[in-house]
Amino acid sequence: MTDLTPITALGASAPADQHFGPLRISENADMALASLALRRTADMPAPMGLELPAPGKWSQGQGVAAFWTGPDQWMIEAETRAAEDFAAELASHAPGCSITEQTDAWTVFEIASDRGDAPIRALMEKLVNIDTGSFGPGSATRTGLHHLSVFLVRRAEDRLAVMTMRSMARDLWHVLQETARRLKGEPA
């Protein structure tokens, strides 16, 4: 165990976590990420029992999940394993694939609503040019958000994850805060 103390993408010792009316936005600093790309000769793997999803989709397994990021390319998520060398472990489950550690390449904000999907949709309408009507649970995409490049994952009707490059975490957090704050006063 290293004796260096990590900081979050926002420069704090604990992840950000804030409520805005029906929405709760929390920084997910514990999730490990690794990209998986198929090599030419590789068969479609099912790492850790995960079924790798089709374009625009996100799929969930036991403690791991994956979303499509490009042709023959996925991002694998592993809950609570940020401190580990998850990429190395994933590599052992995906022979013939190119695995790259991405845990700290991204900052992940989990947005949860306690009033169903409406607040999530209202938030999305202010942030991204994505049709919320066709971005239901299990959807994932990459898009622009206030000049930031982001991945969006609709984890459930009432849950959305937004991730951007870690170096831009401060700007994403600011935008999410501002937008959620403004929506607070408006009916969900």
Partner: peptide, 13 residues
């Protein structure tokens, strides 16, 4: 060609 690319600029300090 069998090549896979991904940016790791932000992943490593």
């Amino acid at each position: 060609m069998d090549v896979q690319l991904i940016s790791t600029t932000d992943a490593w300090a």
